[in-house]
Design a protein around this nucleic acid. Structure first.
Length: 499
RNA sequence: GACUUGGUAGCUCAGCUGGUUAGAGCAUCUCACUUUUAAUGAGAGGGUCCUGGGUUCGAGUCCCAGCCAGGUCACCA
């Protein structure tokens, strides 16, 4: 293996540490008394502390030095004085070990006493230090000046995503994004648990990849000798649990779709699915807008207004509600209620939308909405009442024939949530699956598979239920002002690197 | 999948119509420096110019093919 100059120097230092009897990778615990931010809060001088972390920078001034020690909370300044580190004649520990053999990026543990420097910087005067782990590769040397400008940022997206560990070490804002992601998920989970809804785990490996229309990843089970698929959705399993008597179930579901990748799509992604018995989609709209208002506040210090791509998004409920028919009427001047399938098809063609004969009425309406409407909805907006043939798992509308009780939530022109009054009529559900099968014959490769066991479960009776799926990754993007899904996934999908 | 932009030192980037030994800042190494904080001063080393072909007296630069990434589009109800 070819090593760079800097790596060779570090490997040499590693050997010299060993020659001095210092284990660069010790096994024993290092007791930490404080972490950086805790120590800074209510800082007092003269406190004995022990800290551990990564040494991010050093300023050596002859017989004294300063260093930045970075832990999970932040950074803290260390002060080292030769004669306090080495009270006797032997100055090796300071002159050789600290000044020569340690490098930026090494983990060290220190024991010392807190004090304020001349310029008032809270610091630890180090009396003892210990090598905890030697780094062989140099971290990028990112520096921030007194005005907060970042110099020589580690910014190449390919390197950042492939080596997220380095990204997290040197780009503090990256860590903040993932802390926010965790907080968003925790806030959602706490809200559901407070309602008494049950968090469940359902199969990731499925024999029939149902609940959505998407190309699955296929695999094979050797012992059973059958094909299995990574789930594209978990919806049909959660409904079986409502049949089984749970009145509220939810799952943070990692789903897998074998499709294109772009700024808002990764092959694996997380959907929060929630199903609550005896509720309808009107109740779900209220629930979702209140929930997202609270989630926004939880990550923005009590404020429900967030900035996303330079625009302010207000998560304060209530959110605008508009039917799909009215949305299309407003944005494309087409009244879908007055047109049959062929009428809508020719309206699409006039608007320059690419359509073909395999598309049914619902699919045509969906194209029309996707092309002309959805990008208009920047502030949180519920689009309601979708055509029945695009929504094979949704209850028909209580008083609008041909439509369903479904809504999607759009924020910043992107779909964030999709919810229904769930279809619980087993006869109707069977017919819907059959018409999906007909669409498939007609050439629609996104039509759903028929899941006979799911139909059987409905025949045992499912209470009226409302369900929702929330795109967790997209929600995190919107609450952390990120425009790429890769920025909210710790390890976004990449082509394998050649070593 | 299509189009497009890019790939040069550990990191961030220059490198003109092809022309001596490929540059800068930070980082690294050596020396100095006992309160600095983008520490400072002096000096030094460090390169598969993404890979493979081609054109040419001569290629980081031009051409072809490939690899990887970003962006846009398609796809993803």
């Amino acid at each position: 293996m070819i090593r760079s100059e800097q790596e060779q120097v570090r490997l040499g230092s590693l050997q010299q540490l060993r020659d001095l009897g210092i284990n660069p990778y010790p096994a024993e615990e290092f007791i930490v008394s404080h972490r950086s931010e805790d120590l800074r809060d209510g800082f007092k001088e003269g406190v004995e502390v022990s800290l551990a972390g990564r040494m991010m920078s050093r300023r050596i001034m002859g017989k004294a030095s300063f260093a930045e020690l970075k832990d999970a909370q932040g950074s803290f300044q260390l002060y080292l004085n030769r004669d306090e580190i080495c009270p006797g004649e032997d100055k090796t520990l300071y002159n050789s070990v600290f000044k020569k053999l340690l490098d930026r990026g090494d983990f060290i543990g220190v024991k010392g006493v807190t004090f304020l420097t001349k310029v008032g910087e809270p610091s630890v005067k180090v009396l003892e230090f210990k090598v905890l782990s030697k780094a062989i590769r140099p971290l990028p040397a990112v520096k921030t000046d007194e005005d907060g400008n970042v110099h020589d940022a580690f910014s190449d997206p390919e390197l950042r995503y492939r080596m997220r560990y380095v990204d997290l070490c040197v780009n503090d804002k990256v860590k903040d994004t993932f802390v926010a992601r965790s907080k968003i998920i925790r806030t959602l989970r706490e809200a559901f648990d407070n309602e008494g809804w049950l968090e469940v785990d359902t199969p990731v490996l499925q024999a029939i990849p149902g609940g959505a229309a998407a190309r699955p990843f296929a695999t094979h089970h050797n012992a059973l000798d059958i094909p299995l698929y990574l789930r594209i959705a978990n919806e049909l399993y959660l409904k079986r649990l409502i049949v089984g008597g749970f009145e509220g179930v939810y799952e943070f579901s990692r789903n897998f779709r074998n499709e294109g990748m772009d700024r808002t799509h990764n092959p694996e992604f997380t959907i929060l699915e929630l199903y609550v018995a005896y509720k309808d989609y009107n109740w779900m709209m209220k629930t979702i807008e209140n929930l997202l208002g609270d989630v926004a506040k939880s990550v923005h210090g009590g404020k429900a207004k967030v900035v996303l791509a330079g625009q302010e998004i207000d998560f304060t409920p209530p959110y605008a509600r508009i039917t799909m028919r009215d949305a299309i009427l407003e944005n494309a001047s087409v009244d879908i209620d007055k047109l049959d399938e062929d009428g809508i098809r020719s309206a699409c063609k006039k608007l320059g939308i690419d359509v073909d004969e395999s598309m049914g009425r619902g699919k045509l309406i969906d194209e029309l909405f996707g092309e002309k409407c959805e990008h208009q909805y920047i502030q949180p907006t519920f689009i309601t009442d979708y055509p029945v043939d695009m929504s094979p798992l949704t209850k028909t509308h209580r008083d609008k024939p041909g439509y369903t009780e479904r809504f999607e939530l759009f924020i910043n022109g992107t779909e964030v949530a999709n919810a229904y009054s769930e279809l619980n009529d087993p006869i109707d559900q069977r017919e819907r699956f059959e018409s999906q099968a007909k669409l498939a014959e007609r050439g629609d490769d996104e039509a759903m598979f028929i899941d006979q066991d799911f139909l059987r479960s409905l025949e045992f009776g499912m209470p009226p239920t409302s369900g929702v799926g929330i795109g967790v990754d997209r929600l995190v993007m919107m609450l952390t002002d990120q425009t790429s899904i890769q920025e909210v996934l710790l390890f976004p999908q990449m082509k394998p690197e050649q070593f």
